[in-house]
């Protein structure tokens, strides 16, 4: 490639990334603005953060979200890993059925999935709250864990399993001592992904929240609709920090499961 087209490439990519990140950065910027309007910049302040920390409702919503996200991520990690391992041991037909069903929550638009669960849980007379939130969130998280662990399983060198067999290991032993340790990094990465997706979900949570269990995104969404103060910006900025901590955590957990950011591409 010649210099001219190289320059165009750099220009195009830079421009693209500026547009990609300016909206995010402007939210952060205005969280430090004294004025509550975006019309002018009236000086630096941390007042909005102070207000945020004194807001009980937001704190409660945050607690619900964290609780739901942690439970969802553990539940999805267990179910998704189990389903991936089980499906390679099952017949080909069963494996295909499981894979097909796993795609359903990914291809049905979230609104439709939300409505279907709303109808289902109200028919069962299940009270809406943490339980319904965790179950519904697990539905769109389990498929990712399943897919990511399945990809990892396909990479495993079959001779390792055969060696274990030759040495007299039973199926359970093989799963416990060979397969699980090998897929663990993928499971961890996928469960972090589940954590992030659960923390971010607006649509399904809107239908699944109970009167006393509003999640943070649902609350932020209603704040944004009513009219916004930079308190929302401050909240979003803290959220962003939390996200970066999560990614940093993943980078340190290990590189075997693949980069957390790149893994999300299967979504």
């Amino acid at each position: 490639m010649n210099i001219k087209s190289n320059r165009f490439r750099t220009l195009y990519l830079s421009l693209f990334f500026i547009i990609l990140y300016v909206p995010v950065l402007s939210v952060v910027l205005y969280s430090f603005n004294k004025s509550s309007s975006t019309a002018y910049w009236s000086g630096f302040t941390l007042d909005w953060y102070k207000q945020l920390f004194n807001d009980r409702v937001i704190f409660e919503a945050f607690k619900v979200s964290i609780q739901v996200a942690l439970l969802t991520s553990v539940l999805s990690a267990v179910i998704g890993t189990a389903s991936a391992i089980i499906s390679i041991y099952a017949t080909e037909k069963t494996e295909k059925t499981i894979n097909g069903l796993m795609f359903l929550p990914l291809i049905v638009p979230e609104v439709a999935l939300g409505i279907s669960l709303l109808i289902f849980f109200s028919a069962l007379k299940l009270p809406f709250g943490t339980l319904t939130l965790v179950i519904s969130h697990s539905l769109f998280c389990v498929p990712y864990v399943h897919i990511m662990v399945q990809l990892r399983l396909k990479e495993i060198d079959i001779s390792i399993i055969e060696a274990a067999k030759d040495l007299g290991a039973t199926k359970t032993q093989i799963i416990k001592t060979v397969i699980l340790p090998l897929v663990m990094p993928s499971t961890l990465t996928a469960s972090l992904l589940a954590l992030a997706m659960s923390m971010d979900d607006v649509i399904i949570s809107t239908y699944m929240s109970g009167p006393a269990t509003t999640t943070l995104p649902v609350h932020i969404f209603s704040m944004m609709r009513v009219g916004v103060t930079p308190k929302v910006n401050a909240l979003c900025t803290l959220f962003l920090l939390g996200t970066f901590l999560l990614i940093g955590l993943n980078q340190t957990i290990g590189s075997k499961g693949g980069n957390v950011i790149e893994q999300k591409q299967i979504r």
Binding site: S26, A196, D200, M224, V228, C236, L240, I261, K264, Q265
Partner: peptide
Amino acid sequence: IMLIMLPFWISSLLRTYGWSILLGND
């Protein structure tokens, strides 16, 4: 690639709200 994927990890409400800060009348 990391820069392309990173927004996935940023709250989708935040990313939407960013546009109303950019495009609003003020």
